[in-house]
């Protein structure tokens, strides 16, 4: 953790303090307290409906929390549209269903936000896109449309699209859940490479192998609460909580 670029000096790039959220009457997030350091890889696991996706969607304000504070890169998330856009610029997000823009080519998918949000000249944006496609291993697909690619390739394009904005944080919302088993590996390899390069990552996933290999910390959530936080070794070998043990016994 040599770089301390976050402006508040606390050493944490994401801080959630007592975050609560309701869908109507339904209490989805209950007193969430999480702090993520820069260059840290945090994996969030838990049964469906436990609020994992909602948590990371709150971090770039795709969902609005009703109580508590979320501070990302020193900026507090509020209804101020300017702050939201500042934070979104620094946070890349990868979705379960890729959400590539089907009417744009791979190249246009990757360059659109660079050019419009970052105001990068077209040539620079395209150079960046080509570098990133090289990095995710599909340099030859630049001029195809998303519909012409396999699921794994699409998800890798989605990662490249998020990286093109040069974010400080990458959020992954079950990036491999919609993929065939043969394609999961190619996406996980890209994510591992990204983790090794020092990107701050918050990953919601069911890939326990990935969590064990790459994560610095694992968060286990159930019914909107954080049940347990710990290193992968601690988490997988020696969990404290009964709920965690039950969950692990079912999936491993």
């Amino acid at each position: 953790m040599s770089e301390q670029s976050n402006s508040n000096g606390s050493g944490y790039i994401i801080e959630c303090q007592d975050v609560n959220k309701w869908y109507g009457e339904f209490h989805v997030l209950k007193d969430i307290n999480v702090k993520v350091k820069e260059r840290e890889v945090v994996v969030v696991i838990g049964p469906s409906g436990s609020g994992k996706s909602t948590l990371i969607r709150c971090i770039n304000r795709l969902e609005e929390h009703q109580e508590g504070n979320i501070i990302v890169d020193g900026i507090e998330l509020s209804n101020d549209l300017k702050n939201i856009n500042l934070i979104r610029r620094e946070t890349g997000m990868v979705f379960q269903s890729f959400n590539l823009f089907p009417h744009l080519t791979v190249m246009q998918n990757i360059t659109l936000a660079q050019r419009y949000v970052r105001r990068r000249p077209r040539r620079d944006a395209e150079d960046m896109a080509r570098q990133l496609l090289q990095r995710v291993g599909i340099p030859e697909q630049a001029n195809k449309y998303p519909g012409q690619l396999s699921g794994g390739q699409q998800q890798r394009v989605a990662i490249a699209r998020a990286l093109a904005m040069q974010p400080k944080i990458m959020l992954f919302d079950e990036p491999t859940s919609a993929l065939d088993p043969e394609m999961i590996k190619e996406v996980l390899d890209v994510m591992k490479e990204l983790a090794r390069s020092g990107m701050t990552m918050l990953v919601v996933t069911h890939e326990m192998g990935f969590a064990r290999e790459v994560a610095d910390r694992v968060i286990f959530m159930d019914s909107g609460r954080i049940v347990e936080i710990g290193t992968p070794e601690h988490f997988f070998e020696n969990p404290n909580h009964e709920r965690t043990k039950l969950f692990l016994s079912q999936i491993l």
Partner: peptide
């Protein structure tokens, strides 16, 4: 959402 996440 994807567009918002990209900051558009």
């Amino acid at each position: 959402e994807a567009a918002q996440a990209l900051g558009l």
